Simulated scan of single mutants.
Amino acid sequence: MRQRYSFHLDRAGHSVTVNVRSGWITETELLVDGKECAFHRVHGHGVYPLTLAAQLAVEPPLPLAVRLERTGAAEHPLACVLEVDGAELAMPEHAAR
């Protein structure tokens, strides 16, 4: 059975979204301001922890990373953390599309 997860956070006027579609193949995409900046695909239910990197389009560009980890909880099996500008921010889960 395929499962979907979506995490979203607005930071410094920018939108950061992580979408995960897991099943036989797990696809993870990182969107910054609605544009795909990183993508990971693996056979199986995913390899965690997983880190994807991108940058915010500011001058100078600001690097960011998102880290996905298994929580072990049945209700929310994945957690997502945004690392930007020296801070780690938990990204809340949204209803997957």
Score class of each variant (00 low, 15 high):
16 V>P: 01
12 A>I: 06
96 A>N: 03
31 L>P: 00
17 T>Y: 01
60 P>N: 07
76 H>G: 11
17 T>S: 06
44 G>M: 06
56 L>Q: 06
48 Y>V: 04
37 C>H: 08
23 G>W: 03
58 V>M: 13
55 Q>L: 09
68 L>C: 04
57 A>Q: 14
79 A>S: 15
73 A>M: 14
2 R>I: 07
31 L>T: 00
17 T>N: 04
56 L>R: 10
88 E>R: 15
31 L>G: 01
33 D>E: 04
45 H>N: 13
95 A>R: 11
40 H>A: 09
97 R>W: 12
91 M>I: 08
95 A>V: 11
68 L>F: 07
78 L>M: 08
30 L>V: 01
69 E>W: 05
3 Q>M: 08
96 A>M: 02
92 P>T: 05
45 H>T: 12
87 A>M: 13
86 G>L: 01
58 V>Q: 15
19 N>T: 11
87 A>S: 13
96 A>D: 04
47 V>E: 15
24 W>F: 12
56 L>V: 07
85 D>M: 06
50 L>A: 03
4 R>F: 01
88 E>Y: 08
17 T>A: 09
90 A>K: 12
32 V>L: 05
91 M>Q: 08
48 Y>R: 04
15 S>H: 09
67 R>Y: 02
21 R>I: 05
89 L>E: 04
23 G>F: 03
95 A>C: 07
75 E>D: 15
29 E>C: 01
19 N>Y: 03
68 L>M: 08
8 H>C: 09
9 L>S: 10
37 C>S: 10
56 L>N: 08
92 P>L: 06
88 E>Q: 15
26 T>Q: 05
20 V>F: 00
61 P>Q: 10
14 H>W: 00
54 A>W: 03
39 F>R: 15
1 M>F: 06
81 V>E: 13
60 P>E: 10
97 R>L: 12
79 A>E: 14
8 H>T: 08
2 R>Y: 02
13 G>C: 02
31 L>H: 03
77 P>Y: 07
35 K>P: 05
76 H>V: 14
38 A>R: 04
18 V>C: 04
2 R>C: 01
19 N>R: 14
72 G>Y: 08
45 H>V: 10
40 H>P: 01
77 P>G: 10
66 V>Q: 08
65 A>F: 02
45 H>L: 15
49 P>H: 03
46 G>Y: 00
4 R>K: 09
80 C>R: 05
85 D>K: 07
39 F>Y: 13
69 E>M: 15
12 A>Q: 11
19 N>H: 12
62 L>R: 13
1 M>Y: 04
46 G>H: 03
14 H>K: 01
88 E>T: 11
96 A>H: 02
44 G>N: 07
40 H>C: 06
55 Q>C: 14
81 V>P: 08
23 G>C: 02
97 R>S: 12
83 E>T: 10
80 C>N: 07
19 N>Q: 12
74 A>Y: 11
94 H>R: 14
9 L>K: 12
